[in-house]
Design a protein around this nucleic acid. Structure first.
Length: 221
DNA sequence: CGGTCGATACACT
DNA sequence: GTGTATCGACCGT
């Protein structure tokens, strides 16, 4: 895309993530590697707000307690990637939103693979169907080949590409509800900041956050 | 299709 | 030390 097009997209992304959502749903994110290109049409996202938002504090956000080396990309300009590693084995990708320094973002939760289907399948051999290839944040990151090595990179420049829909998705076609996997207040109905394309078969199945009972970890000699 | 449960390594306190 | 913005294997319906 041209520098002018990128500037226009970045302008759209530089708003509150809850306002950006209708533009990101239906958008296509691509990542090219030596193995090829995979593109995903985004069908589900979650908004996470920065620590200085005056509207409502967001204890569910990685930036709630301020800047750390890991979340530093979220404090940067809109349109960049924030990718983190979790549960000891999974990556999840965000698109940074808001003005520079706002530290808000949209977690990319699900989408439809629209390019590079074979490569996507090879990256997720466990997938039961093509609709499941990117039906979940870690699944989506996996099919796109995104890891923490991509965190902080500009999604509007090669080897990435982000194409927004010509017009925002009408509100009537967008579902919303509590965020998935967020424990405590951040997962409550006071934070209905998960957005999806109504009726889209690639949207992940909702699972409420569960408090996990820690099993005693010990190594017997 | 849906519920249960364990895996796994890192960030942050 | 503690908790995690999750997934898939397994098994039952």
């Amino acid at each position: 895309m041209s520098a002018q097009e990128a500037a226009g997209i970045r302008e759209v992304l530089s708003a509150d993530p809850r306002e950006v959502a209708p533009w990101i749903l239906g958008a296509v994110l691509s990542h090219s590697t030596a193995a090829g290109t995979v593109s995903v049409r985004l069908s589900e996202v979650e908004a996470y707000l920065g620590p200085h938002d005056s509207h409502q504090p967001d204890p569910g956000s990685h930036t709630f307690r301020g800047r750390t080396p890991r979340n530093a990309p979220m404090f940067g300009p809109a349109g960049h990637l924030y990718v983190y590693f979790t549960y000891g084995m999974h990556y999840c990708a965000n698109i940074v939103c808001g003005p520079d320094g706002a530290a808000s973002a949209l977690l990319l939760r699900a989408g439809e693979v629209v390019e590079g289907l074979e490569l996507a399948r090879s990256r997720r051999p466990a997938s039961r169907s093509d609709n499941d290839l990117a039906s979940g944040p870690a699944r989506l990151a996996t099919v796109l080949g995104l890891t923490t090595a991509d965190s902080g990179k500009d999604a509007l420049a090669a080897p990435y590409r982000l194409v927004l829909p010509a017009t925002p998705v009408p509100a009537a076609l967008i579902g919303s509800g509590p965020r998935v996997g967020v424990a405590g207040d951040g997962g409550s109905h006071d934070y209905p900041w998960r957005f999806w394309l109504a009726g889209d078969p690639t949207v992940s199945k909702y699972k409420a956050a569960v408090r996990r009972v820690r099993r005693t970890v010990r190594k017997d000699p």
